[in-house]
Computed example of a mutant assay.
Amino acid sequence: MAGYVLKRLVAIIALTFGITVVAFLIIRLIPGDPVIAMLGTGAGDKEMISRLREQLGLTRPLHEQYFVWIGQVLRGDFGYSYANQQTVSSLIASSFPATAQLTLAALTISLIFGSAIGIVAAVRRNRAADTAGMGFALICMSIPSFWLGLLLILMFAVVWPIFDVVGGTGLKGLVLPAVTLALGTMGFNARFIRSSVITALAQQHVTTARAKGVPEVRLFAWHVMRNALLPILTIVGLQIGQLLSGSVIVETVFSRPGIGRLLIQAILAKDYMTVQALIMMIALIYALSNFIVDILYPVLDPRIAR
C-alpha cells in the first residue's frame, strides 16, 4: 500500500510541475505583447511599457521568469489584475466558493439521478424501463449546456417565474445552473453505471450467492454495487474537472459569479495574469481529484495495491 501511494505521489508531483510549466508558457508564447494588451489605451507611453515589463520580470531570461513566478505562486501571490485593479489572489478567493458550490451541486445531482436511472435500467434490462432510461440519458448527453441554460431561463424566468435565475447566489438561484451543468454528466453516468451493474450481475459469485438464497437487497448492496463501485469512482474523478470547465459556459449564461465567468471576463479584457492563474488552478484541481481517486482505489479493492 505504501509503495502504491508513493508511486501516485511521485506522479502527481511530476504532473503538477508540468501543469505549472504549461500555464506559464501559455501567456508568453501567444502572439502579441502582453504588456501592451494590459495597458490598452496607455500602450503609447514607452516609459510605462518599459516600467511594467520590468515590474513583471519580462526582461529576464525565460527560465528565470519561471522560477520567480513559481516562487510567488507558492507564497499565494498570482500577480496583479490591472483590469480589475486588485490582486489575482483576492479575485480567485471571492469567486471560487460560488463555483465550488455549483460544481458540488451538479455532481450530487448527476450521481444521484444518474445512478438511479442506470441501476433501474440494468435491473430491467431490455425492457421498457431500460429503453426509456437510456433514451433519456442519450438526450441529456446530446443537449448543449448553453442552449439548455437559455431554454430553462425562458421557461422558469419568463413563462413561469419560479426560480431566481440570472445572477442568483442563493438556493433558488443555484437550482437551474446546477441542473444545466449536471444533465450531460448525468446521462453519461446512467449509461456507465448500467454497464457496470450488468457486468457485476453476471459475475459467478453473484450467481452463487443468489443460489444460496441470499436476499436480493443484500445481494445487490453487498455483492453487486461493491464490485460496480470501482469504475464509478473513476468517472467521479474525471467529472470534477469536466464540471469545473463546464462552469465557464453555465456561469456566463446565468450571469452567476464564479471562476468560470471570471475566466471569460479575463480573456476578453486580456487580463493575462488572471487567465494564467485560473488555467493552472482548474488543471491542478482536476489532477488532485484524480489523485484522491487513485488513493481510494485500494480501499475498495486491495488487490490494486499489490
Rank of each mutant, 00 (worst) to 15 (best):
K46T: 09
I112A: 11
A137Q: 08
A132E: 00
A43I: 13
I112E: 05
A43P: 15
D45K: 10
T41C: 04
A83L: 06
T103Y: 01
I92V: 15
L150G: 03
Q55H: 13
D45W: 12
A93T: 03
A43E: 10
G79Y: 06
A100T: 10
T131P: 04
E47H: 11
N126V: 07
A83F: 02
Y82C: 00
F113C: 04
A105G: 01
G57F: 07
F67G: 11
A106Q: 02
P34L: 00
I70M: 15
H63P: 08
E54L: 13
N126A: 08
T87S: 09
R124W: 08
T103D: 03
I143H: 13
L25A: 12
K46I: 10
A98N: 14
G79T: 10
P97I: 06
G133H: 07
I36T: 15
M134G: 08
Q85T: 07
G44N: 03
G57E: 06
V35K: 00
A137D: 03
A106L: 07
M48A: 13
Q65L: 05
C140S: 13
G118D: 04
I153C: 02
F67P: 11
L52G: 12
Y82E: 00
E64Y: 08
Y66D: 00
L74V: 15
Q65M: 10
R60E: 15
G71Y: 14
P97H: 00
W147N: 09
N84T: 07
T108H: 10
R75H: 10
L91F: 03
L138T: 15
M134A: 08
L74C: 12
G149V: 07
L150E: 11
G133P: 09
Q55D: 13
A106F: 05
I139C: 05
M48W: 12
Q86V: 11
S115M: 15
Q72L: 10
Q101P: 02
A93M: 09
G114R: 07
M141N: 15
I119D: 02
S110M: 13
M134V: 07
P97T: 02
R127G: 11
F78T: 03
T108C: 10
I117G: 02
L91Q: 11
V35H: 06
R51N: 15
I109A: 09
R125L: 02
P144T: 06
C140M: 01
L52Y: 05
Q65A: 04
A121V: 02
I70H: 11
N126R: 12
P97V: 02
I26T: 12
V73W: 09
R127K: 12
L52K: 03
A98Y: 14
H63V: 13
F96G: 13
A116R: 05
G114M: 05
G42I: 14
I30S: 14
I109N: 06
L107Y: 08
S145K: 14
F136H: 04
S81H: 00
P97L: 01
F78K: 01
I143N: 08
P31I: 01
V68P: 02
D130C: 01
P34G: 02
I153A: 00
L58S: 06
Q55Y: 12
T99P: 05
L151Y: 02
F146A: 10
E64F: 12
A132F: 03
R125T: 04
L62H: 05
I153P: 03
S110V: 00
F24L: 09
S90Y: 04
A132T: 02
F113K: 01
L138A: 14
